[in-house]
Simulated scan of single mutants.
Amino acid sequence: MFSPQGPSLRELTVQALSSVERGYDLLAPKFDHTPFRTPDEWLGATADALAARGPFRAGLDVCCGTGAGLGVLERLCTDRVTGVDFSAGMLDQARAAHPGAELVRADARDLPFDAAFDLAVTFGALGHFLPAERPALFRGVFRALRPGGVFALPMGTPPPPTAPAYWVLLGFDAVMRVRNAVWRPPFVMYYRIMHPPAVGADLVAAGFTVESIDLPSLGHRRDGVPRSCLLLARKPA
């Protein structure tokens, strides 16, 4: 649909009517040929912002998908890099692209790590977690980091109601809510629940200290506000 190598409309429909896990298993072989993959510009901007705060030893990509974020960790970390995801299909793709990474199949809401990493990242995954699920996710990342470790979350700045993107995202979320009200299993993916201030408050509640860094290289809204920011959540030393 998006390119000759991407999924067809029929394939996307089947995936959208599946569970999150099954949907990503089906989409995995063609995922990198869709707009759902984190753009290289986002990956580069995140890596550049983190480089000044490194080097880091061990890195963890939470909800790693096909492994786009593993490349960021390989650039920044001097020791091992690890990706975790609950889709076996996505992990197969990540394994092929990053043979040197350790890949673990697990639910991000119940991460099986304890003080093992200095840097954790996640790219584009927060929309799969309802606000009530974020505390478990963030507590697991907090537990997985060593004292002084950093959790980096690049996020888009919500567009104002005067921007067409506001109404596109509103419409998408509305369609998803109707779909989940009438069809099982649910497919959780909402864009308008990822507000940086709310996410930051949940990170603080999990024990992190949080700062927000603008990513101006990713552009600005018409009102001059950067389109993207990087939340840096640090576990106290």
Rank of each mutant, 00 (worst) to 15 (best):
G69K: 12
S87V: 02
A97L: 14
H33R: 13
P39V: 01
C77V: 09
L60D: 05
R134G: 01
L215V: 05
I193G: 09
R109M: 12
P236F: 04
V72C: 08
T78A: 13
G69T: 04
L43P: 06
E133A: 15
S228F: 11
V141L: 12
H98Q: 14
L126A: 06
P7Y: 00
F117P: 03
P197D: 15
L12D: 00
G127Q: 14
F113H: 12
G124H: 10
R53S: 07
S3N: 08
P154N: 12
P216N: 08
V175E: 11
G219C: 01
R222F: 05
A144I: 05
S212M: 10
D214C: 00
K30L: 00
P236C: 01
S212F: 04
V72Y: 07
S217L: 04
L215I: 07
D92Y: 06
G71A: 13
H220T: 14
L169Q: 14
T34W: 01
G71W: 01
L70H: 06
P135W: 02
W167C: 05
P159N: 05
A108E: 05
L73N: 11
L26W: 03
R57A: 12
Y166W: 15
L70Y: 09
L230M: 10
P99A: 02
L230E: 08
K235Q: 14
L153P: 07
V204C: 13
P35Q: 08
E74F: 03
P226I: 02
R179C: 10
A47K: 03
T46P: 03
T157C: 03
T34F: 02
P99H: 09
A47W: 00
D107N: 15
G71K: 03
L9T: 13
F172K: 12
E21L: 09
F142N: 13
I193H: 15
V175D: 11
G6V: 00
P159C: 08
A181R: 14
A201R: 15
F129G: 00
A52E: 14
V188A: 11
P216D: 10
G100E: 07
A58K: 14
R143W: 00
S228C: 10
G67I: 02
R179G: 05
G224W: 02
L145M: 07
D114C: 11
E21D: 14
N180S: 01
F56C: 12
L60R: 02
L26E: 06
G23Y: 03
A88M: 08
F86E: 02
A125G: 13
G65R: 01
L232Y: 01
L9A: 08
P39Q: 01
W167H: 15
F208P: 10
L43W: 06
A97S: 12
L12A: 13
L60C: 07
A94K: 07
L76Q: 09
L26M: 09
A201L: 09
G148W: 10
G100T: 03
L231P: 00
R37N: 05
T78P: 05
R53T: 04
A96M: 05
C63Q: 05
T13E: 15
S217Y: 02
G83L: 07
L130E: 15
M1W: 06
E41M: 04
M176T: 09
V178D: 08
T38A: 13
V182N: 07
E41P: 06
S19I: 00
R57V: 04
R80Y: 04
F56V: 04
V141R: 13
K30Q: 06
V121Y: 09
R146W: 01
C77I: 10
